[in-house]
Simulated scan of single mutants.
Amino acid sequence: MKRSVCFMLISFLVALFLTLNANASPEYIQFVIASFSMRPTFEVGDVITVQTDVNVSEIYAAPYPDGDIIVFHHPIQPDAIFVRRAIQKSYANGTYYFQTKGDANPNPDGWEVPEENIIGKVIAYSRTHNAGTWNDIAYNVTWYTNSTISNFNFSQLDKLITFDITGYMSQAENGFCNVTIPKNLLRCESLYEWQVRLNGTNIAYTATQNDTHTFIYFTHSYSTQNIQIIGTEVIPEFPTVVLLSVLTVVTTLNIVFMKRKLNTKLRQRLTDKKRKYSEINKRFYEQF
């Protein structure tokens, strides 16, 4: 009895690994990753886009990082939904079966997934990185991509965002990436002033914007690439409050310095006048 209750509890927790987004279209649905089992491909909080109208015979099964990533109902507890990489595929009695494995797990899962349990395969995902906090406001950069993102960094000094991008999923012909950047963090006066560099070389991109964000889209080939996105204007290095404080201190010091300088001049003038009057008085007394 205890084992049954424990298994039901585990199944319930596994079902919470992903949260279904009901706003998606019938062919494409979204889930939120809530487990570390697919690291480094997915992190907790990533939102994956799943294509549901797939031909299971075309799902590609291979070890990391090449196999398709599938979303499916657990073979024993169908209420539990899992996301795993298909590493092996077999066919028996008119049905396809898939051996699966989490990218972060040392061993394959202890089951085979029949084709009727498959919800779909992952074709893209979105991830948000924190670029920093200024004036108590956190600035986030978001990707929507079919590739693996790593080593994110934002440099105020160089006015750039940099990250590594690796491969792409679902046997796509090309990798793509759409980056959402807050204008208060990094921006350009013109959309044509942005620079997108792949391994140090400028590449073509498409840029759009709204009042608060810029959206930069580009494609890339299959391999590990370093991406740099360079703007022309960046968030101030110091918060506004700090700048005002510094300005106040500088102004105060300047006033004090000017007062001291003025007082020195006045004292010098008084000294000169005293010396002059002293000489006049001396001459006056010498005449008498």
Rank of each mutant, 00 (worst) to 15 (best):
D46G: 02
G102R: 04
V256R: 14
G45I: 09
S90K: 01
H74P: 04
G132D: 05
N130M: 10
I123H: 11
T224M: 04
V44R: 03
L9C: 05
I59M: 03
I161Y: 01
V234S: 07
E189L: 08
K183Q: 10
N130V: 11
Q268D: 07
I118N: 02
S245T: 14
E27K: 13
K2L: 02
E116R: 09
R275P: 02
P75V: 02
S245D: 15
F12Y: 15
P239K: 11
N254E: 14
H74G: 10
F218K: 03
T201E: 00
I216W: 03
G110Y: 12
T201S: 00
E193H: 10
T201F: 00
F238C: 11
L198T: 00
A15R: 02
I10H: 05
W143T: 12
R85I: 01
I230T: 08
Q228A: 01
E43L: 13
R267E: 14
N21A: 07
Y192P: 00
T142D: 11
V250G: 14
M8C: 03
P108R: 10
T166Y: 05
C188T: 04
E237M: 07
I149C: 09
G94M: 09
N55D: 08
N178M: 05
D164L: 03
D66H: 06
A131F: 09
Y96P: 01
K89F: 04
E116I: 11
H213W: 06
Q225P: 05
K89H: 05
H74R: 05
N146T: 12
Q77H: 08
R85H: 06
I216N: 00
E43C: 13
T142Q: 12
K274D: 03
G45E: 14
E286V: 12
T224I: 03
Y125G: 10
L18I: 02
I33W: 12
P236Q: 06
M1E: 14
W111K: 13
L262G: 08
F7S: 06
L247M: 07
L243N: 13
V71T: 04
V242Y: 12
N130L: 03
E58G: 01
V71F: 03
F42V: 07
H213N: 06
L243Y: 13
S4P: 04
G102Q: 07
R187Q: 08
D66T: 09
S245V: 12
K261Q: 12
N202A: 07
V83N: 02
T240R: 15
E193S: 07
K273L: 09
A86V: 08
Q209T: 09
L157S: 14
T41H: 02
N107D: 15
I33V: 15
A124K: 06
I230W: 01
G175P: 11
A86E: 02
V256M: 08
R84Q: 03
D68K: 00
Y125H: 15
N174Y: 12
S147R: 05
E193M: 11
Y96R: 01
R3P: 03
R85Y: 00
